[in-house]
């Protein structure tokens, strides 16, 4: 499947920095930043105030008024939705296939996991975060349990998959964008705000050991560490 953009640009090299619209707390913009860093692409991060998301000029970039979104001056493209952005970055700039498989069944297997991340991991982790961080005063135990159980289920699906394949990553034998798309939401589980409680890291390691090691492997990557450090700086205002 020849990619038109790559054909036009001849495996484009990003000369000008890609603008990344982000925010401190939420993991989705950082998901995109991890990929930008992994691919060694130049980028400028602009941290947005929530108040500016649902009005112009930002709404012309993302009609949904959410981050992340990107503007790429090298192609003139504007994109939103972290999953769509990641697919675009890979298809446009990963000419050496360092983070992806571009053919064969693996190409599609990756997409299945990316879609599972954005429809299965992100939304449920996000709901748990909402009920944990913003509604501690209300008695919404059943909501917390609902999303807590879903988080455990998502991790157990990964754990079972790694067990059945005997591999270290979700697809094939290397770390791909499909794996990395899960990494930034895990920050909320293993460090403040610890949306599953402080004991959860131990529970995860004991009950879902293969998924735990998989996450450790990803978190040790330079790009993931750097993005995490940047996020800490943004949140603390330094």
């Amino acid at each position: 499947m020849a990619n038109l953009l790559q054909k036009i640009t001849g495996g484009l090299k990003a000369e000008k920095p890609i603008k990344l619209y982000g925010h401190g707390g939420g993991p989705n913009p950082w998901k995109v930043e991890v990929i930008l860093r992994e691919l060694g692409l130049p980028f400028d991060r602009q941290i947005m105030d929530f108040a500016d998301l649902k009005k112009e000029p930002f709404e012309s970039i993302n009609p949904n008024g959410r981050v992340p979104a990107i503007e790429d001056p090298n192609t003139g493209m504007k994109l939103w939705e972290s999953g769509a952005i990641i697919e675009y970055l890979l298809e446009t700039y990963d000419s050496s296939n360092s983070l992806s498989y571009t053919s064969g069944a693996e190409k599609w297997e990756q997409k299945c996991w990316l879609h599972f991340q954005m429809s299965g991991q992100g939304p449920y982790f996000g709901q748990r975060a909402w009920f944990t961080l913003y509604h501690s005063e209300k008695n919404l135990t059943s909501c917390l349990d609902r999303y807590g159980n879903e988080i455990r289920r998502v991790i157990s699906v990964i754990d079972a998959h790694l067990k059945s394949t005997g591999r270290e990553y979700l697809v094939g034998d290397k770390c791909t964008y499909a794996d990395l798309s899960f990494a930034t939401w895990h920050w909320l589980l293993t460090s403040p705000p610890n949306i599953m409680g402080e004991g959860f890291a131990k529970e995860w390691e004991e009950n879902y050991p293969l998924a735990w090691k998989w996450n450790e492997r990803m978190q040790a990557r330079a790009a993931v560490k750097e993005a995490r450090d940047e996020r800490t700086k943004v949140i603390s205002g330094k």
Partner: peptide, 25 residues
């Protein structure tokens, strides 16, 4: 649309909007 074209990318934005937004919510 042809992969990599402007419309293809725009279509993908909305596809992900559906699956990460409308569907789960």
């Amino acid at each position: 649309f042809p992969p990599g074209s402007r419309e293809f990318l725009e279509m993908n934005n909305w596809l992900f909007f559906m699956n990460a937004g409308v569907g789960p919510m």
